[in-house]
Design a protein around this nucleic acid. Structure first.
Lengths: 300, 300
DNA sequence: CACACTTACGATATTCGTAAGGATT
DNA sequence: AATCCTTACGAATATCGTAAGTGTG
């Protein structure tokens, strides 16, 4: 008994017959020939080891046991259907949840448009974004709390797979009246004498910058956490700064100019980080694909 | 999607694999060869239109969709199993309810032993007895409130089937010191002169008696509702009475004697009444069979 | 190369629809 | 005679197990 094998179709057939009380009609409902339907009911009765219908040529009625089972069967078919619909909603991305982690610079400037596009395509999917510094992003992925991350780690962590999605060139930002504003594409060396406004030491922007400067030291005048703050400081004339292209929107201000740095190998690499094993949910995969696609479109 | 056909076995296989995370082991659990099991999972994934497991030669893990479905599947298999167990309990008469109606004379004297036997055989079945006069018994059956009845109706009602289960001979009951006590088997005529204690007019005992007497009139001294009352009255010397064999236990008292009436065609016929169409529940059928069997044993 | 999942394939079992049978009105 | 469920039976389909294939540590 514990190993009985019943199918959803048998339950549906049973319920159809219980409601319509006619083999002929119920068979039509189930898209079966009447004899096949009859056999199906007989099989079901055999598996349940009881007669479910009193039937003769004139009438078809549930037995007491049939009525009992009908109540269960109705609920089972409903629950089964609900489970299938729910699963399918997730598969078809009508429901679901995606949690990604991304560097604040991406979260503020570039991601919103991606999220908007995603939302439009899959309005039923709940989005969750952790805008954190690179290491924290990676930790969320490793712990499974985030589906994937956009971070600047080049280190290949065990169990994580990283994929380069963007190489972000750096730009000088300074006031229009600054001497460097005259240069179309200044070199790093030329920047050295001027007071410099840094991002905080653990930001990806700062780390890429330090790595590029290495033996050199910048003439630090100020260290801030937020790019918007840096923009304000530069505009106020406290100093210059150097930031990746994807953050330039912060510096689109009347009194500021931005200049690509002369080829210096100074770039910030952005990686998509995900767990090595375990596929993404349908929803996460969709966002993943959209991210990749959008990135490709930006820098072909 | 609405017409997907899943089987309980597929769900069990899916859950086995989700838990054991090994095709080989899960296949063994399901008593299948590993390739057959593999095909089964593949079919399931096809029907659900999604991959449920991330698998390679080294590891088998649920996908996000698989985890979602696993929760549903677990509950479905449980509910399904519970429904099957419940149904089987009814089929095997470990659970259930039987409601019968019976004449008070049977309810008090003869049925208790039958019920005791039934209870012993099927301790899980709830018993329900309506001890009512014949017409009320039949009404309960007709309305479907009782599974069957033991009544004295000979009338064949539409939609009901009646079956004679017992022909109850009548006995004189009187005091030991009554003149009739001397007769081993008095005739009805001899009773006529003596004061008579009747059952109420709508009782089956009274009706059978009136039918037998017909042109004659009894010398009624008293009319009572309960046989026990009649017994007390007879013992007190108020009169004699005539009652069916099955009620004689009421009259087994020190100062009373019972005498079978001489062949007079005076009998009370007891019928088992049930609905013509519609089988009995397993529990009701069991009680039905026990009633028939016990009746047969009493009067072979 | 050993282990674990997949593919290939012939054999078996199940399920189907058509046609004939039986019972009831 | 008409209607409805059941039985009979050959055909189509699905499922099984064995054996070979593939990929990974």
């Amino acid at each position: 008994m514990a190993q009985t094998n019943l199918s959803l179709r048998q339950l549906r057939a049973f319920l159809a017959l219980a409601e319509q009380r006619s083999f002929t009609q119920a068979a039509a409902t189930c898209h079966l020939s009447q004899p096949a339907f009859s056999a199906l009911i007989r099989t079901l009765e055999g598996e349940l080891n009881t007669r479910l219908f009193d039937r003769d040529t004139r009438s078809v009625e549930l037995t007491a046991e049939g009525r009992l089972f009908a109540a269960s069967a109705r609920r089972l078919v409903e629950d089964f259907g609900a489970a299938l619909v729910d699963l399918n909603d997730h598969v078809e991305r009508r429901k679901g949840r995606v949690h990604i982690a991304a560097l604040p610079s991406l979260a503020a400037g570039w991601l919103p448009a991606v999220f908007a596009g995603f939302r439009k395509a899959w309005p039923g999917i709940e989005l969750n974004l952790s805008d954190l510094l690179s290491d924290a992003c990676v930790d969320l992925v490793r712990s499974g709390k985030a589906d994937f991350a956009l971070a600047s780690t080049g280190v290949s962590h065990a169990g994580l797979s990283t994929r380069l999605v963007c190489t972000d060139r750096f730009y000088l930002v300074c006031r229009k009246d600054h001497p460097l504003a005259a240069e179309a594409s200044p070199t790093l060396k030329k920047l050295a004498p001027y007071p410099f406004i840094h991002m905080s030491r653990n930001s990806s922007v700062r780390q890429a910058l330090e790595a590029a400067l290495h033996p050199q030291q910048a003439n630090t005048v100020l260290e801030v956490d937020q790019l918007a703050t840096a923009a304000g400081m530069v505009e106020a004339g406290l100093g210059i700064s150097v930031v990746p292209a994807l953050t330039l929107f912060h510096f689109e201000r009347k009194n500021l100019v931005t200049r690509p740095l002369a080829a210096s190998g100074l770039t910030r690499k952005i990686y998509l980080v995900r767990r090595q094993e375990g596929s993404l949910s349908a929803a996460a995969q969709a966002l993943h694909d959209l991210v990749i696609e959008t990135m490709k479109a930006r820098t072909p």
